[in-house]
Design a protein around this nucleic acid. Structure first.
Length: 305
DNA sequence: ACTTCGTCCTGCAAGC
DNA sequence: TGCTTGCAGGACGAAG
């Protein structure tokens, strides 16, 4: 489940390989990957990648002339850049679980782009929650003129409602703290709401709340707790980002969906039943908003103002 | 207007 | 052993 750190790592890898590259051909396999692309992938053919940009878990190639190739990885989407089939070097495959056919049409291949440097960009996705769509740009609602030090942004239209993330220097932190302090929704729901703060998924939401010692069902936080949550959140994201930057191979834009993740440093997610690293209490698993949630029933409390 | 819920999809794990 | 069932997840549209 790629969240902000993973998507940012992928963005960097893509930028390295795609900047200035022209797309010669674009092919979608099946219709699901282009379900949000009325005209399919055709609009990007012949266009050149000017930049690779991210907002929350969305990323896109800026193709200039009011065109973006928008991508969401869903749960299992991967980008891969390969040499032309048949010319791959021997012994280059060392990845655990690397059972894909190399050179031919690999399993779960959803789209393929031919680049002007002879390489191929593949979009691979097992669970098909990801998608690609050539779209136009639109100004965001955030950064109201005169707003607190925020800057207007222009993003692909389908992303205009997505908030900035915790690592975004233009995040309106005052407004976010206000929401955290007054909301009547469970705090984990708020963290997962991409319209409030973006980039956080089920894994890092649990981590942030655990580290900030805040119960996932806590509502309106005290100012102190809200600040603590943002602080813990930034630490979690930055640590994961630092770890993710090291897992790149030359031609592989993405870490392997399973093994490449930053699970080593996770203290809450997926550890239900195991002892809390702080107090030894077995971590508890609950369902919140239809999503599995892991927490320490002793350490994590609902701050009452 | 606001919040919650159901849906999409596939592979793996657990249960009978 | 082989089958069925359940679970996982992000984001969106529908329903409350």
């Amino acid at each position: 489940m790629p969240e902000l750190p993973e998507v940012e790592s992928i963005r960097r890898g893509l930028a390295e390989h795609l900047m200035g590259r022209r797309i010669l051909t674009a092919q979608a396999f099946g219709t699901r990957v282009i379900r949000r692309a009325p005209r399919g992938l055709a609009p990007v053919v012949g266009r050149t990648v000017r930049a690779v940009v991210r907002r929350g878990k969305f990323l896109w190639c800026d193709m200039g002339e009011d065109l973006a190739l928008l991508a969401h990885l869903g749960m299992s989407g991967q980008f891969r850049i390969d040499e032309p089939s048949g010319s791959e070097g021997a012994g280059g495959e060392e990845r655990a679980g690397g059972s894909d056919n190399f050179g031919g049409k690999r399993r779960h291949l959803r789209a393929r782009f031919a680049l002007d440097n002879g390489r191929v960009l593949d979009f691979v996705d097992q669970r098909t929650f990801g998608y690609l769509a050539p779209v136009a740009f639109q100004a965001t609602a955030d950064g109201q003129p005169g707003g607190a030090g925020s800057k207007r942004a222009v993003v692909p239209a389908p992303v205009a409602h997505i908030a900035r993330d915790l690592l975004d220097p233009y995040l309106d932190e005052t407004a976010l703290l206000e929401i955290l302090g007054t909301t009547r929704r469970a705090m984990k729901r708020v963290l997962l709401d991409q319209n409030i703060v973006s980039g956080i998924g089920n894994i890092y939401a649990d981590e942030m709340l655990y580290r900030a010692r805040i119960h996932p069902e806590a509502t309106a936080l005290t100012n102190r707790a809200a600040r603590e949550l943002l602080h813990a959140g930034r630490e979690v994201l930055q640590a994961a980002l630092a770890a993710g930057g090291t897992s790149f191979d030359r031609l592989y834009v993405h870490v392997n969906g399973e093994s490449g993740y930053f699970e080593r440093s996770l203290q809450a997610y997926g550890r239900a039943g195991q002892p809390c690293e702080r107090c030894g209490t077995p971590l508890q698993k609950i369902i919140l908003g239809g999503r599995s949630t892991t927490l320490c029933p002793v350490c994590q409390v609902a701050p009452i103002g």
